[in-house]
Design a protein around this nucleic acid. Structure first.
Length: 576
RNA sequence: GCACCCAUAGCUCAGCUGGAUAGAGUGUCGCCCUCCGAAGGCGAAGGUCGAAGGUUCGAAUCCUUCUGGGUGCGCCA
């Protein structure tokens, strides 16, 4: 459509109506918010009025006449300050239905990522226990984002950063040791600073199975490494299982420990040192909230302030060990070097403080300025049951694991609900409401629309009407003429554009909202069929008209299944 | 103290690269539903887009300041 307008404008230039040398890049051609204004609108006249030194209306009038010459434009009229509204020929919308049927789930696929690669890192929870609901949103969001980018043509890598180094895995090992003692008949005591969760009980038993009582009362140095590796492996196995239950499948699991062992950290720092971005120095204490026992110490620091961070970040502790930041530095450098065009980190909102330093890292290390780096934060999930909020507490035993959620509501519902809000807004998750089978529940509403179409297809087949996609695509779609039907077709036409926007902004929730709107249009048409039998999909004794109408319904289902596919949700064939 | 995120209808939330009279659901109110596709349908009311400035043909959207809420702030990961 835009090409059409630009073409007309160029013609106006060569005819001398418009001066030469105008920049058309601000000329937008898009569907207006209010459908009353037509199908397409352009701001060309207003944008060009100033540089062309002409009145917007004069430009618009000529442009309107030009566009009317095109067969695809039925009406072009000037409105308001200089908007140009176009009403398109009905066959254009009918063409959309056909395109959706021919394209199938690929209808709407964008090529914005063609030939590019993207890395999405998400979840990345410490392997010290099972995943809980807090991880769930990040998992779903990251996975849907990865799905969205894949739909936009990117070659996507889904990655999990495993924090298998540092103090917390030693704590894990000691916690498992306590359970191991318990398995050997000794009394279990909750020690300060250890993980009390009973998920380590089976691990303790397995350790007893394997080692008997040989490590009882032995010094920590005898068993720590062995216990740590075994326990961590078990935790990772559980995490993998949990994610699989949610239909999240990571392709790459990168170990933090491997960075310590391979010397990648040193290498990265060496390069940064050569760039003059690492130095020895002393940090100021944080303002306002001075920690107890603060004393200034000399540390190795990364010049994050050079790239927009608030303070320089320590990479080495005063005792010479690496801070958590050091492997992060090396890890992101590695991602840059692996050649990704797009790198996205998905963090929980409680890690919001890391955004600037991470961006500083990539800005410093991506010396060619080739990588598009983005960090998406997922806000908290508030849990409700029977309309009552309930808090998660490890001590009170109301620790809700991700597995609990999936077992209660299923992966499809969990995923969709988690995406019915912008990622940076808090989300309420009510166990009862998400399972409710009513219009109030967006998951149900969208699934129901898909199921209704499936039901039409089944009934049509029973009635002897041929309804495979190829036949439907070839149906006489000029029979789709009513406003109600065209409205649905227009919604379908929005799909490719929506994918583009969602992909560009890295916001998969837009897909979920769109699907709700599309479902709404289908339900609305369906309801109109209650009163007006000519709007029903199956017209008795008229296979041709039926096929045209079913083609429209089917194209809705095609788009719904493509959209749900991006979100990682399975479309329902029928509601039970 | 500083940084980041958020503030849109009574409530829960959408709102694209700045575009026309700011949308949806829910709630409220009114009407419809004996049967033909009601796990309903149609319609109405409801807004200073937190406040004040600025940028421009044009701002919920961009910039500045302020107010209110959330999160985070060296040797934990």
């Amino acid at each position: 459509m835009r090409a059409l307008v630009i073409e007309a404008l160029t013609a106006m230039q060569s005819e001398g109506v418009l001066p030469e040398g105008l920049d058309f890049k601000n000329v937008a051609v898009e569907p207006p918010r209010d459908a009353l204004h037509g199908d397409m609108a352009t701001n060309a006249a207003m944008v060009l009025a100033k540089p062309a030194k002409m009145k917007p209306r004069d430009i618009a009038d000529v442009l309107a006449a030009k566009l009317m010459d095109d067969v695809r434009v039925e009406v072009a009229e000037v409105a308001g300050p200089g908007f140009l509204n176009m009403r398109l020929a009905a066959n254009l919308w009918q063409g959309v239905v056909k395109a959706a049927l021919v394209g199938g789930v690929d209808f709407g696929r964008s090529d914005m990522g063609a030939g590019k690669s993207a890395n999405v890192e998400y979840v990345s929870a410490n392997p010290t226990g099972p995943l809980h609901v807090g991880h769930c949103r990040g998992a779903v969001f990251g996975d849907a984002l990865a799905g969205l980018l894949a739909y936009c043509g990117y070659d996507v890598t889904r990655e999990y950063w495993v924090n298998d180094a540092g103090g917390q895995v030693d704590v894990l090992a000691r916690s498992a040791y306590e359970r191991y003692r318990e398995a050997n008949g000794l009394e279990f005591e909750v020690k300060e600073g250890l993980y009390p969760g009973d998920y380590l009980v089976p691990v303790g038993e397995a350790l007893k199975e394997k080692f008997g009582d040989s490590f009882i009362d032995k010094p920590e140095s005898d068993w720590l490494v062995t216990f740590r590796d075994i326990t961590m492996e078990e935790m990772l196995r559980q995490i993998r299982e949990d994610l699989e239950a949610l239909n999240v499948n990571m392709q790459v699991w990168t170990s933090e420990r491997s960075y310590y062992e391979s010397g990648k950290i040193e290498k990265t720092l060496e390069e940064l040192r050569e760039m003059g971005l690492v130095y020895r120095g002393v940090l100021e204490p944080p303002k306002g909230k001075e920690p107890d026992g603060w004393e200034p110490r000399e540390q190795t620091l990364f010049k994050a302030t050079e790239y927009g961070d608030d303070v320089d970040r320590p990479v080495q502790k005063s005792d010479g060990g690496w801070t958590y930041f050091a492997p992060d530095l090396a890890y992101h450098y590695d991602k840059v070097k692996r050649g990704f065009d797009v790198i996205i980190d998905v963090f929980g909102a409680d890690h919001g403080g890391y955004v600037k330093r991470m961006k500083a890292i990539v800005a410093a290390l991506d010396t060619e300025k080739r990588v598009h780096f983005d960090i998406k934060l997922t806000q908290l999930v508030k849990l409700f049951k029977n309309g009552e909020p309930f808090k998660m507490s490890k001590r009170a035993g109301t620790f809700i694991t991700l597995r609990d959620v999936i077992e209660q509501v299923g992966p499809d519902v969990t995923r969709f609900v988690m995406l019915t809000r912008r990622n940076d807004a808090p989300l309420d998750f009510d166990f009862d409401k998400v399972l409710e089978q009513s219009k109030d529940n967006p998951v149900f509403y969208v699934q129901y629309a898909h199921a209704r179409v499936c039901s039409v297809l089944r009934k049509a087949t029973d009635a002897g009407i041929v309804v495979d996609d190829a036949t439907l695509a070839a149906a006489d779609l000029t029979k789709l003429g009513s406003d109600a039907e065209i409205t649905v077709a227009k919604k379908i036409a929005e799909w490719p554009r929506l994918v583009e926007i969602a992909g560009r902004t890295n916001e998969p929730h837009r897909v979920a909202f769109y699907l709700y709107e599309l479902a709404s249009e289908l339900h609305s048409l369906w309801n109109k069929g209650n009163d007006d039998t000519s709007l029903r999909f199956i017209q008795e004794d008229d296979a041709e008209t039926s096929q045209a109408k079913i083609a429209l319904a089917r194209s809705v289902a095609v788009v719904i299944s493509a959209g749900l596919g991006i979100l990682g949700v399975t479309p329902a064939q029928e509601m039970r």
